[in-house]
Design a protein around this nucleic acid. Structure first.
Lengths: 216, 216
DNA sequence: TTTAAAAAAGGGTTTTTCCCTGTTTTCTAT
DNA sequence: ATAGAAAACAGGGAAAAACCCTTTTTTAAA
């Protein structure tokens, strides 16, 4: 492996064990080299300044403290359009995939993929400028005609509400916490009851727990 | 690094990207060598048979399809007591920690730890037979203290009621099903609220699920 | 700029839940 | 048998949840 021909990668992930492990893997690929990794978006901003060399590709996680993947993506799109970003996360939520891709991500990879796929993604991103797995393509198509009876899709705020509903809080308290009127919460509640075909709050709680929307 | 003095590790994790990455990391440690990785418990059973060499330490994830970490731990404890198991997961739930340790796990590590900690854990597990982080020690102590205060005892009918409360039935419907007056049910409800220190039915449901009184 | 859709609120009613306070029945131990 | 304790039953009233229908505000799109 010749260092002069190798392409620089940066990993952004708060799970340092994963990041360190991933670094070894990426370094083992032909012509790829991990410059450094950052714990979150803020950390990345600092390190992009501190290091003279810019990466060609950033592998970006979504769930991070301080500055998450969404914010980071927006900032990179504004300030470093030349860096190609591949999202690398466990979240296979359709909404999130679409959000990141429309914010300029060049690809969306799930953490349970085979290492060869990652290598392929990196190579293809350099060559073609993007990489889209079958899964992502599927999601995109699915989102176009999602009239089927499968898992309903939730809005961000609905998910927030469901999580809070899985607690001893009253709806009024939930409204306060979400900075919304109790009436708006009542609207979310009603929509969810209809959408999920449940009769009351306990039914909603059970649904949320069954589908890993909330954990106890 | 001398291969004859290096200790064999096996990784059990369905996230193949993480597993492959972790393999590189572990191989980079002094005197450790990853034999192979398995996608789940079933896969592990097969590979333990197929390979002539047994690992000294298994790094085990919890959330896996087909055969999860809990089942796998039980099986290993029955059939391969000589292999030391370190749980490596994202779940920091106290009950899961206790469950795995009482099933014979030699340590419990979170995936966001620093790589050095993993190295330390592996070394210590070989030397002392176990590795317990501060977090795990905390959980154990906490569970001991909470042992005295809690664990209320339930009557048969109270348990029946709790199970039914974890459904969309109203108290009236539960009363019908249990052949009791709604007011009697109201009495059970009240007693349980006081006994368990919960505010409302959702609190009761969460308690019942957490303590395996009811399953969903 | 008009239009349409989605999100957020409001008003008002019924049902369920919650909580306090009791009475009656059942069981059990002396 | 009988007092004491637990279990079952119950009334009244306040609060929360559930339900339904309408209106305003925000957002995105044509």
């Amino acid at each position: 492996m010749n260092k002069t021909t190798s392409h620089n990668i940066v990993i952004v992930d708060d799970h340092s064990l994963f990041a360190s492990s991933l670094e070894k893997l990426v370094n083992s690929f032909n012509n790829f080299n991990v410059l450094y990794h950052a714990k979150n978006g803020r950390d990345l901003q600092q390190k992009l300044k501190d290091y003279s060399e810019l990466p060609e590709i950033i592998l970006l996680d979504l769930n991070m403290p301080v500055m998450d993947g969404f914010e980071t993506m927006e900032w990179l799109h504004e300030n470093h359009k030349e860096i190609k970003v591949l999202v690398l996360t466990m979240e296979d939520d359709e909404r999130k995939i679409l959000k990141m891709l429309s914010n300029g991500a060049k690809g969306y990879l799930l953490k349970d993929i085979h290492p060869d796929k990652l290598n392929e993604a990196l190579v293809q991103t350099l060559e073609k400028g993007y990489y889209h797995s079958e899964k992502v393509a599927e999601s995109l198509l699915h989102s176009l005609h999602s009239n089927d009876t499968e898992k309903p899709t939730f809005k961000e705020r609905e998910i927030d509400f469901m999580k809070l509903a899985c607690s001893e809080m009253t709806y009024k308290e939930i409204a306060d916490k979400m900075n919304l009127s109790p009436k708006t919460i009542d609207g979310y509640r009603q929509d969810l009851f209809n959408k999920l075909d449940v009769k009351n709050r306990v039914g909603l709680v059970i649904y949320a727990l069954k589908n890993d929307i909330s954990k106890i």
